[in-house]
Design a protein around this nucleic acid. Structure first.
Length: 275
DNA sequence: AAGCGGTCCTGTGTGC
DNA sequence: TGCACACAGGACCGCT
């Protein structure tokens, strides 16, 4: 489910509510969700820890705690992190409940059970597999147009799978990769090293614009995604190509087509995105 | 290297 | 209606 805009929205909806609170207790109903350390150890170490701040890196949500600890959460496809009063109705597929010292709860629910929760020391963050291999966050000031252009030249991969590679750029997933390529007017199967400087520039621009627009619209809820307050996003109403197979391109009217690329459905306009 | 396909899961939408 | 099968916002692994 959640790509960068969704994780960012979860972060923004949660930070005002939980920052400054302490974790009182943790209930774990599905132990395999907890990766590092073991579930028992996490449940022992967390109580009493105050929540200092929240951060997002790519699609990871980082909850910084007292004593230099960080709770690292990845929602994968269907993970949800929802702030709830204790008497709120049960959320289906709830696997972990963090009890907070104001009496409320932070619930982790995940239909497909692919998500991950880890607890590490701040100094060990860089050693977490997945996190340590992340490429630039698109909103990192070090992620410049020139750098991006150079990286594209260094690779010879198709654009769509490349955009999904978290080691290349962190945060794009299947929805936004399609939307970005449509906005940049680039064919998903174009080889990255063949882009002209102008095209590379368009791609760079499109990444930022699409993500900004999606964040401004609180993310995309096609199926399961909700923010930290349980609310759906709005960007599903603004998608140009993703999930629009057979529908007319909003620019030229040509039916949007779907192909399979790197095992993922890929939507594009064959007229606006020529190879 | 780059690009597949399978894997972890449960639920939903389709086509017969 | 019932059933089987494809597919779903992710990422890792092992094979060519």
């Amino acid at each position: 489910m959640p790509e960068l805009p969704e994780v960012e929205t979860v972060k923004r909806t949660l930070e005002g509510k939980i920052t400054g609170l302490s974790i009182k207790a943790v209930e774990i109903f599905l132990p395999k969700i907890i990766k590092t350390p073991g579930p028992e150890e996490l449940a022992t170490r967390l109580p009493g820890k105050k929540i200092k701040k929240l951060e997002r890196k790519g699609k990871y949500l980082l909850i910084y705690l007292a004593d230099n600890l960080v709770l690292v959460i990845h929602l994968r496809m269907t993970g949800r992190l929802i702030y709830s009063p204790p008497d709120a109705p049960d959320i289906p597929h709830t696997h972990v409940i963090f009890h907070l010292d104001n009496g409320d709860q932070l619930r982790y629910a995940d239909l497909r059970q692919f998500g991950q929760v880890s607890l590490v020391k701040v100094d060990d963050l860089a050693g977490l597999p997945g996190l340590c291999g992340l490429g630039y966050d698109p909103f990192d000031p070090h992620f410049t147009r020139e750098l991006f252009r150079k990286e594209l030249k260094n690779k010879r991969a198709m654009l769509k799978p490349l955009l999904l590679d978290q080691g290349f750029v962190a945060g794009l997933g299947n929805i936004y990769a399609d939307e970005v390529l449509f906005r940049a007017r680039l064919h998903p199967q174009r080889q990255s090293h063949t882009l002209t400087p102008r095209e590379a520039s368009r791609l760079y621009q499109a990444i930022r614009e699409v993500l900004e627009e999606a964040i401004a619209n609180r993310g995309t809820s096609i199926r399961d995604y909700v923010d930290g307050e349980g609310r759906e996003g709005n960007y599903q109403n603004l998608l140009r190509v993703h999930h629009r197979e057979g529908d007319p391109c909003l620019k030229c009217g040509t039916p949007v087509i779907r192909v399979r690329l790197g095992g993922r459905s890929t939507y594009y306009c064959p007229h606006c995105q020529k190879s």
